[in-house]
Simulated assay, not measured.
Amino acid sequence: MSEENKFKNQVKQIYRMLVVIWCVVLLGVVFAIYALVDPNFSAFNTDEELQAVLVENTIEEDDWDKIENGIHLRTGFVEDDGLMTVVNNCTSCHSAKMVTQNRMTKERWIATIRWMQETQNLWDLGNNEEIIVNYLAKNYAPKSMGRRANLENIEWYNLN
């Protein structure tokens, strides 16, 4: 075998080694990212383990509409007049998070309802619309931005 062929064979071997190393590094990076996203590696759990997690995180039927500290546990909505009307009409199509992450004026809530009716097949809410809009405008209105509230009930201490 000539020197040129030996050299070409060595380059091929080095190239193959680099490809293997690159693949191993890539797999390591993918594994590390997966470990960050799902530290419990739940995709690899057995059916029994997944069922146990589901049972643990399931709201009992008795607690389905339970309210604690002014919050509807199943949805996270604020307890107030019209709560169940909002739950029954809004969470049929989307999660409560879609509502709670938004803050709008009464006019914007109405405009959003109209948009959902025109483009998302939302039904006519009838008399419930006023109840829903009043609930949303009261409990999920825009927050005014400004200076933070004064600190109260603070136990001050001296730094030594």
Rank of each mutant, 00 (worst) to 15 (best):
M1N: 10
S2C: 04
E3S: 06
E3H: 03
K6D: 08
N9Q: 14
Q10V: 13
V11L: 10
K12Q: 13
L18T: 05
V19R: 14
I21R: 07
W22L: 12
W22A: 15
V24I: 15
L26I: 14
V29Y: 11
V29D: 13
V30H: 08
F31V: 14
A32S: 12
A32W: 09
I33T: 07
Y34L: 11
Y34S: 10
V37P: 02
P39L: 06
F41Y: 12
S42G: 13
D47I: 11
D47H: 11
E49Y: 04
E49R: 01
E49K: 05
L50M: 13
Q51L: 15
V53P: 00
L54D: 09
L54G: 07
V55E: 14
I59M: 12
I59R: 14
E61A: 08
E61T: 12
W64M: 13
K66G: 05
N69P: 03
N69M: 06
G70C: 05
I71V: 15
I71Q: 06
L73H: 02
G76M: 04
F77N: 03
E79V: 05
D81M: 03
D81S: 06
M84V: 01
T85N: 00
V86C: 07
V86Y: 06
V87T: 00
V87S: 04
N88H: 11
N89G: 00
C90R: 01
T91C: 13
S92C: 05
S92Y: 01
A96R: 07
K97Y: 11
M98P: 02
V99L: 11
T100G: 04
Q101H: 09
Q101M: 10
Q101I: 13
N102A: 13
K106M: 07
R108Q: 14
A111E: 15
A111T: 15
A111F: 07
T112L: 12
T112S: 13
I113R: 06
I113Q: 03
W115G: 08
Q117V: 00
E118S: 10
N121F: 13
L122C: 03
N127I: 05
E129T: 02
E130G: 04
I132A: 02
V133L: 05
V133W: 04
V133F: 03
V133M: 00
N134I: 01
Y135P: 00
L136G: 00
N139H: 03
Y140M: 03
Y140S: 02
Y140V: 04
P142I: 05
S144V: 11
M145V: 12
G146C: 05
R147H: 06
A149L: 15
E152A: 08
E152S: 08
E152D: 07
E152H: 04
N153A: 10
N153L: 10
N153C: 00
W156R: 11
Y157M: 08
N158A: 12
N160V: 10
N160D: 14
